[in-house]
């Protein structure tokens, strides 16, 4: 497997696995993180996967305890090198498919009309295109549980709003350029909002605090406002 190392300060190293955002690089990223999960290094604090990189945060002090003559960075690169060179690119299948119910109606999708108009479509066509795509979660970042999703049809691509909203409710589903995404917590943001999901993407009390992880495939399933409310009630019922 081809790779490059770049230091990110005195306690982290970026492993670069490709130059462009594509499926092949994404699969390499997935292979590396799967291996880290299976055989964690004791000096590793955590890793952060992204589109083309996996960044490894390490504890220089721990490394100096068992390898006091080597620079911690050199030691880490040496260990990662032997791991990466043993990896063979093969078929990597992550078949976890997560279905995300989305209500595209009324005030839950305030920019749906605009997205339709911008692309010369009807709102129904936008919903159909958005909910029939196959999507892939490339990485989680920006906010807790926020998925960077690839695979949206360019037919509904729409630029960001000129002035961002100060508050976007949790669960909002939006479009920014050629990307679609879901806001896990209330934040400011400039995405065009076309719907909202009743499910929680960020669950701080769960063992895995993010519903989605890099490598997941997702599908959006349109639901009615009644179903949305029903779902919301069930969710809050479970919590109390």
């Amino acid at each position: 497997m081809d790779y490059l190392f770049h230091s990110l300060g005195d306690n982290a190293v970026i492993i670069e696995l490709g130059e462009d955002i594509n499926l092949e690089t994404h699969q390499k990223v997935n292979m590396v993180t799967t291996l880290f999960d299976e055989q964690p290094f004791e000096w590793m604090i955590e890793y952060v996967p992204a589109f083309t990189t996996v960044t490894v945060f390490y504890d220089p002090l721990k490394i100096s305890d068992f390898s006091s003559y080597t620079l911690p960075y050199d030691y880490v690169c040496g260990q990662l090198k032997s791991l990466l060179e043993s990896l063979k690119i093969g078929e990597f299948s992550s078949e976890r498919i997560v279905e995300i119910p989305v209500c595209y109606e009324g005030e839950l999708g305030p920019d749906l009309e605009y997205v339709a108009e911008y692309n010369g479509l009807t709102p129904e066509e936008v919903i159909h295109i958005h909910s029939s795509g196959d999507y892939l979660v490339y990485m989680i970042g920006f906010a807790p549980g926020f998925p960077y999703i690839g695979g949206m049809s360019e037919k509904i691509a729409t630029p960001r709003r000129e002035s961002p909203r100060l508050k976007i409710p949790a669960g909002s589903v939006g479009i920014a350029g050629k990307q679609t995404g879901i806001y896990p917590i209330e934040t400011p943001g400039g995405w065009q909002l076309i719907g909202r999901t009743p499910i929680k993407l960020f669950r701080p009390d769960d063992k895995s605090p993010s519903l989605l992880k890099a490598g997941d495939k997702i599908r959006f399933k349109p639901i009615t406002i009644e179903e949305y409310k029903q779902w919301k009630e069930n969710v809050s019922g479970k919590n109390h």
């Binding site: 990110l8 300060g9 306690n11 982290a12 970026i14 462009d20 955002i21 952060v48 992204a50 589109f51 083309t52 990189t53 960044t55 945060f57 990485m139 989680i140 970042g141 920006f142 906010a143 960077y148």
Partner: peptide
């Protein structure tokens, strides 16, 4: 640029040319 991890103390430069030093509550990427 393609988004990737950042660290405590990363100095990044947005298009306006004024550097930002990322600190404790930095985003992950």
């Amino acid at each position: 640029m393609i988004s990737e991890a950042v660290n405590f103390g990363t100095i990044q430069v947005p298009p306006d040319g004024n550097p930002i030093v990322l600190l404790a509550d930095r985003q992950t990427t």
